[in-house]
């Protein structure tokens, strides 16, 4: 039988800061970030890895933190939306989303920005089509897709007008 109430040690570096916690095996990474570390910038929406709202970087790769168990992330470096700004200065993507209206209700925004950052880290000069393909798993129920794309493309430096 399961050992009721068993806790497992998890060590993570989150946004550059090391944390060591004891957590139940069933705790998802998004819950650990939000409830144990108080980093509520990451949102959980669909809960089944489809919508992209809970996107964080795990050792530099975007993952869905809602279907990642915290114990699976033991030893990893995590970057959340709270870690995107550096030295009190917003990331160019954050500036661009604000300036170009890259969000409406905001629920998907942290996932959008973290996903876009991962793309630009790997490929600073993507085409609009490459951005579209990369970002297709980040859903926006306000359907603000053109402004989101524009916000990213303005950072890339390719101003392609939306329809």
């Amino acid at each position: 039988m399961t050992i009721e109430g068993a806790r497992y040690p998890v060590s993570l570096v989150v946004n550059g800061k090391p944390h060591s916690l004891l957590t139940p095996a069933r705790r998802t990474l998004v819950d650990l970030l939000r409830y144990d570390l108080g980093l509520t910038g990451t949102k959980e929406a669909c809960g089944i890895g489809v919508c992209g709202a809970c996107t964080v970087l795990l050792d530099g790769r975007i993952v869905a933190s809602c279907i990642t168990l915290a114990v699976q992330a033991d030893g990893a470096a995590i970057t959340t939306i709270e870690g995107i700004a550096q030295d009190g200065k917003l990331h160019p993507l954050q500036e661009s989303f604000m300036k170009n209206g890259g969000f409406q209700c905001g629920i998907c925004t942290s996932g959008q920005i973290v996903a876009a950052k991962a793309l630009l880290d790997a490929n600073p000069n993507p085409t609009r089509e490459q951005v579209q393909e990369w970002m297709m798993g980040n859903l926006c129920r306000c359907t603000g897709y053109y402004h989101i794309l524009d916000s990213i493309m303005k950072v890339v430096g390719k101003d392609s007008p939306s329809l």
Partner: peptide, 28 residues
């Protein structure tokens, strides 16, 4: 029977969340 293997976990975690799969022991 009480154990389930887990690799990346993308399918298994969803099934665990929905209680469609019951595991007493998850072996990663």
């Amino acid at each position: 029977d009480a154990a389930r293997l887990m690799a990346g976990g993308t399918a298994l975690t969803v099934m665990l969340k929905q209680s469609l799969v019951q595991a007493d022991h998850l072996v990663s």
